[in-house]
Design a protein around this nucleic acid. Structure first.
Lengths: 201, 201
DNA sequence: CACCTGTGATGACGAATGTCACCGGTGCCG
DNA sequence: CGGCACCGGTGACATTCGTCATCACAGGTG
């Protein structure tokens, strides 16, 4: 019997996923969570074999949670479930020892199948996503450039970004210019869109 | 027995929703779709009592499909399922005779419950969403202003927006300026963010 | 009819943005 | 030690953006 932990923020989807897994004879859901920051403590109590984590969870990012989980409970394999296929996330996921990466667009039986294979020690990664990740590559942005672009997402003026990051407005413009050039955008809006789609923010 | 049609673009989620509904004794899923543009013809063939539609479907928008479905098959009640709670969508949904509006964050049993109530002729709408919709109100943007803002989402320059909409660049700037003022944004990025969150785009 | 709204456009003006050259400092690595 | 990447900053420049006044025209409405 494979013991499964599920973390997914939307109630209805979580319930549906549990229903889907309850149809499988060889697995049981031992924990369901809606927040990322409770994953580790719950896992320590319930000792799941596989943790199925959504990426964007309130409280703590699914990938960050995966990293902490690996530190505390390395025998628990992690399988990440994501809605959007952002290649950058796959790279980050592999860094924190995630064993499986499934897109929500995959066939329905992929989930149970993926859980079984991850539990058996295999790696499960969507081939299309691997191709996309190789094509996209790692983020070309420096940490600071990433900060600035992320701040710019909120639509605030350059001066306010500078204030928020404790930088000179002129420096912010330089970082923005660098970022725009690196990701190949025409202006900040374009750059933000490109970087977000790639999963670099 | 309530006959249900489900349209949801992500395979895994669709499968999970079907699994969830298969646990209910009094309903059966007679059709599952992943595209919006096949909803009407499938509904005509399968004669569902309730159509559960996601909002952002490829091919045809879920709300547009709801409108066409009401024209062709008025006895089929429609229940909209959405991930993000964008108040503007609720207003648009009510205009096309949608009977129920459920957010994916709702408790898992809400779906089956909602389907039953919609099938019985009731309206099912999340109270929080109603409050948000009343607070947000209808879109203050004219059709043209909406077009321009939507084009601006892609991060292209004003001149290119003008070319795409066959307008003078100066006119585009005027519409953008109007839109920014109306939604209360500081610049186009802010305006796009606000309008999108409200469901006005 | 006058009035209002939406559409489309022009010209002008100041502010914001994007690019560039260039500066100094830190820390890492061959 | 020299080279290199990242950080942080300055000044200058042309372009773009946001705002405003103003115009014209169509389609409704009182």
């Amino acid at each position: 019997m494979i013991r499964v932990l599920i973390a997914e923020d939307m109630h209805l989807i979580r319930g549906a996923l549990v229903a889907l897994l309850s149809l499988e004879e060889d697995m049981e859901v031992v924990a369901e969570l809606e927040r990322g920051d409770a994953i580790v403590e719950t896992a320590v109590l319930t000792r799941p074999d596989v943790a199925v984590l959504d990426i964007d969870l309130p409280g703590l990012d699914g990938l960050a949670a995966a990293g902490q989980l690996y530190d505390k409970l390395p025998e628990c394999r992690t399988l990440v479930l994501t809605g959007l296929s952002q290649p950058g996330h796959l790279l980050r996921a592999l860094k924190v020892h995630v064993r499986g990466f499934i897109v929500k667009d995959a066939p329905a039986d992929m989930l149970a199948d993926g859980i079984r294979r991850v539990a058996a020690g295999e790696r499960v990664i969507d081939p299309d996503l691997v191709a996309a990740a190789l094509e996209t590559g790692v983020s070309p942005l420096t940490p600071r450039e990433t900060d600035v672009l992320r701040a710019a997402e909120d639509g605030i003026a350059t001066d306010e970004i500078a204030a928020r990051l404790s930088l000179s407005p002129a420096t912010v413009r330089n970082y923005l210019s660098n970022g725009i050039t690196k990701v190949g955008g025409r202006n900040r809006i374009d750059a933000i869109r490109i970087a977000r789609n790639a999963g670099w923010l």
